[in-house]
Design a protein around this nucleic acid. Sequence first.
DNA 1: ACCTGAACACCGTTCAAGT
DNA 2: ACCTGAACACCGTTCAAGT
Lengths: 188, 188
Amino acid sequence: MALNRADVVEAALAILDQYGIADLTMRRLAERLGVQAGALYWHMPNKQSLLAAVSDVIVGQVQLPRDDPDWRAWLPDWAGRLRSTLLRHRDAAELVSTTRATGLGGLDWLAAPRRRLEEAGVPEGEAADAVQVLAHFVLGQVYEEQTRAQLAELGVSAPPDPEHSERQFGFGVRIIIAGLAQSLRIGG
Amino acid sequence: MALNRADVVEAALAILDQYGIADLTMRRLAERLGVQAGALYWHMPNKQSLLAAVSDVIVGQVQLPRDDPDWRAWLPDWAGRLRSTLLRHRDAAELVSTTRATGLGGLDWLAAPRRRLEEAGVPEGEAADAVQVLAHFVLGQVYEEQTRAQLAELGVSAPPDPEHSERQFGFGVRIIIAGLAQSLRIGG
DNA sequence: ACCTGAACACCGTTCAAGT
DNA sequence: ACCTGAACACCGTTCAAGT
């Protein structure tokens, strides 16, 4: 059977998970699919689009928290889910960061937290900015976690303490939520 | 005269500023220095180290704010200086982010803000975490600013509104400072 | 000590030609 | 419609050999 776009993206994600972003090359991907490298360009315009598609799949896996009347509980929950989804895929934070920066991703995965803040009475623009702050923190934090974990795998550095990462993450999220609560001066 | 490490790093920074990180290749760098690519490996162990060295030069250019009895004024000042230093060099946010994640940078450029918080009475560990939150935000924000600016240069997207970036940055910094002030419950 | 020349093992992308 | 084969223009890195 002939290949389709979804097959290509799925195989790319599998390579990412197993070998990391450095080994996610068009040639390796083609090999895994039993096809020549050039064939991939029938399904994708270029590598950037492929990476964006993989990024979309990953952030699409973030499950939204149940409704909670308190946005100060809902938002940390969401941030935690984003983090654990990223941690499930190798180099995911790096991939999602670059995709976000280039604006090539086709999924507006910050829409949900943005809407949650707007429901709480935060004006549109501020809700967008607020979610951006949180997203930058989560991506930056997980990026570092994932890089350090891989360096440890190579024996370059000591393995990172998972509890420390957890604490650091919680601390950052709390700070941002507290700052939001004060700056936006809103209720539940 | 024979080349030295400093010459190599300086030339690398010049290429970064002019052409961006994608064009900062060992071969182009060698060409600019009038030398064969292999010669660079006499001065640097590999490309990663070169990038880390360039990153060190950039973050080393951040000038510290004058002493201010109020850390709530000092820290935003520092964040603003970090941002403008990054904006002066093409792709600097991306470069510094990856260097930070890999831990290859030789410069502890977060030491100053960390110390400033400790002087204000924040316990060591919390000061480090707090500065980390701020750093992740600045890097993430500028990363996006720089990528969008380059996309606009290529005519791919509309040029970003500098006032919007400014406002968004100020908003994020304010949120984080407010959150810190509340979570750490410290004085001037 | 510092660099050349040349190679090795790769990349992403294009495109005429095949089926 | 979908893929092959082969090329183009690159990469980072190594290393014997030169000066």
